[in-house]
């Protein structure tokens, strides 16, 4: 599964980091980092992260 975040609309609320910590995290500078190629077993977590994003910035391919 491909995962992308539209950083032009992301406001770093971090809801995805809570919903899917294996996929999304913050780096030391406070920037969002994520895995772009994710195992299907994590689909539920990634979908929960996309739902929890107040900006709807997460795109699941």
């Amino acid at each position: 599964m491909k995962v992308d975040v539209d950083m032009s609309i992301c406001l770093l609320h971090g809801q995805c980091v809570i919903a899917a910590p294996a996929v999304f995290s913050f780096d030391d500078a406070g920037g969002l980092v994520w895995l772009s190629d994710v195992d299907e077993g994590l689909r539920g977590d990634v979908e929960a992260a996309a739902d929890a994003c107040p900006e709807q910035a997460i795109v699941i391919g």
Binding site: G14, F26, D27, G30
Partner: peptide
Amino acid sequence: ANPAALAAHR
């Protein structure tokens, strides 16, 4: 706050 710092407190 830096999101990473806040995440540790959360």
